[in-house]
Structures are given as structure tokens and as C-alpha cells.
Computed example of a mutant assay.
Amino acid sequence: MSDSTKVPAAQIRTMISPARYVQGKGAISRLGEFLAPIGSTPLLVSDDIVWGFVSHEVEKSLSSADLPTNRIVFNGVPSAKEVDRLSGLIQENGSDVIVALGGGSTIDAVKAAGHAAGIRWVTVPTVASTDAPASALSVIYSEDGVFEEYRFFPRNPDLVLVDTQLVANAPASFLAAGVGDALATWLEARATQRAFATTMAGGLPTLSGTALAKLSWDVLWENALPALDAVRDNLVTPAVERVVEANTLLSGLGFESGGLAAAHAIHNGLTAAPQTHGLAHGEKVNIGSLTQLVLEGAPSDEIRDFVEFTTRVGLPNTLTEIGLTVDDDEDLRRVAETASAPEDTIHNMPFEVSVDDVTSALKSIERLSRGIRERAGLPEPKWYKAEN
């Protein structure tokens, strides 16, 4: 089919996914088994902290599969410079598959580097704090942590492997952040569906993508609180397994093939405010989700339930909790302008959204959430101060 006769993206529906997903307690001990069919000269990427607690099992697993252990250090930010550095190391080492061990930043850098070098890539998340592990895109930031661009790839990871004991051993705040990221999936997917907008997969949402986004939402409302209690004691329970799958796989499939809208665009906008740089991705996304509900004029009971639930999860839903105030006019305007950039996903909302609309909605959540929390007997927001 020639380019002139191709069906436009706006007229097709499509869904994409990783080639294989593996999850379970102790799963990292089988990394070599699942990695061997993908490549023979893997390049492992992790920071020193992650390598300190996975190295023994990884080395043992790769050795049993007759694979070499060649590991390099991730420098901390998925910037264009870091992607270029990793891509160069792939060429130097003659690697045929690159493996990310760690959180979303490591994973985004590794996916982009693997694509740039023309090899396959594998993600091994050690926390369930984002839905990055399963997707065919990376979020690229400046060296200072400001959002710059999405990079899209022609395929998803060949393997996503999640050891739920590693997730349970991490601070519960990581899992809570993943809940914040995943809760946005359904809110954005339903907005994208209403708008007949194009998804990150390059077409209209499929029924499957939208259904998985809704399933992620339902699983989290039922299981997030008991799962968080379990991981505070480093335990893997059925609730933990469900939340890890919702945060990682269901949300990953749901956002990519169901669609992104205002919540993640507002997250991107918040990266333009230095006060928020120490916050986790999912914490900023949660502010975006609540702001999207305000923009939509969502029913008051839906907003009330969302604020109460996310407060109990431990997610921010006020400006105070992300280091901003309603009087920070210049900062909030810059956030709104960045979120409303022509190429960002806020334009997948089923109505026009202006910079003024976003600024007003952001300012409104402070009094709104405080009132809901007070009436529910929930804690008052605490001021967040970013570490220098």
C-alpha cells in the first residue's frame, strides 16, 4: 500500500503490548531463563543501589543460562545525553539486548537507548511505581528534570519481568506512587474515548485497551489499601500481586492503547515548577488526575471519593503537598502553559482546554481537597519542601 492510500490513524483502532510479561515472588531468579531466547550478549543497566540487592540473584540466574553478566551504571536522569551515552556503550560492548533493572527513569533511558542502537530491550522493574515497564515509549527530561519530549518506538519490550518480593521490600511510597500513576489510566482513557482521539499506539482506542484501563481502576480501588499495609511489612499477598499487575501491566496497556489526556499533560507541566522535582511521577500525576476531574466538571461525589481514597493511599491532592500555593501565579501559569503545549495530550480531552482553564483548575484543588478531607476526618495537608 502506498503512502497516499494508507488509512489515517484517526480511522483505525490498534493495540500494542510487550511480547511477554512475567510476575511473581522470586521471579528474578528466572531472568536468565526468559532472557536467553532474546539475546546472547545482554547489557545490564542499573544504579548502584539497585545492583546492590539484585546482583547475586541476577548473576546466578544468567550464569545458569550461560549468559555473561555485563553491567553498567545508570546516571539517574533519562535525558538525551544519557540515552546517547548508553547507546554508545551498547555499540562498544557488542550487545544484542539491553536490560533495565530499576525504576521508571532507568527503564525509560534503556528503552530509548535500545531503540537508538537497533537492539532488543527488556525491563526488570524493582518497584511498581509507574507503568513505564510495559510501554513502547520513553519520557525524556532535561538534565535538570524538566519534561522535554515523548519518544515513540516501533515495538514494546520483549520481556517485562517483575519480582513481587522486590516490590514488597521497597518503601511503600513507591507502590503508592504507582497507584497514583495507574488511577489516571481510566480517567484519561474514558476522556480519550469520548473525544475519539488518537492514542499513544497510533490509532483510536480499542475496546480491549479501554477495558483494561477500567480493570486497572477497579483492581486498585479494591486492593490498594490492603496491599500497602502488606508491603509495609515486606509481605507479598494476593492484594500485592493484584496491585503490582494493575500498576505495571494493566495500566501500561491501558494508557498506551486506551489513551492519555489531561492528567499526564499536567504532570508534564508540573515538571516546569522546580518545587516539584523531588516528587515521584505518580504523585504529580495524581494532582493531574484531580485537576482533570475539575476541568471535566465531574460529579461532586466522584471528586469526593477520589480525594478521600487518594489521601488514604498517601498521595498528594493539594498544592500544599507539592510545594506550591494558590498565590504562586507565575509558577502555576508556567505549569499550565507547559501542560497545554500543542503536542501534549491535554488536547485529547473531549472539549477545548485553555491555559486559563488549567490555571484555574489547579488553583481550585487546594480549597476543594482541604474541605473534603476535613469533612471526612482525614489529615490536613503538610507542606512539601523539595530537597536541594
Rank of each mutant, 00 (worst) to 15 (best):
W217I: 01
L187T: 12
A136K: 09
T198E: 14
M200Y: 10
P226E: 12
E222D: 14
A184Q: 00
A230H: 09
P157I: 05
V167L: 12
Y150C: 13
W217R: 05
L220Q: 01
N169Y: 02
A170L: 14
F196N: 15
A197E: 09
V167Y: 13
P205A: 06
E188Q: 01
L212N: 00
G145N: 01
T198P: 08
D144T: 09
V146S: 07
P133D: 06
L207D: 07
A172W: 09
A176F: 10
V179D: 06
V167S: 11
A170M: 14
T206C: 09
V231M: 13
V139M: 05
A177E: 03
L137F: 09
A128Q: 12
V167R: 10
G180K: 04
D218R: 10
Y141I: 05
D144G: 04
W221E: 12
M200S: 05
T130H: 01
A182H: 11
N156G: 06
L207V: 06
S129D: 08
E222N: 13
L183G: 03
E222A: 15
V167A: 13
G209N: 05
L137T: 06
L161S: 00
W217Y: 10
L175W: 07
W186D: 07
L183I: 12
N223P: 12
P157S: 07
W221I: 02
F147S: 08
G202S: 06
E143L: 03
E188W: 02
V160M: 03
D229Q: 15
D131S: 07
I140W: 09
V162G: 03
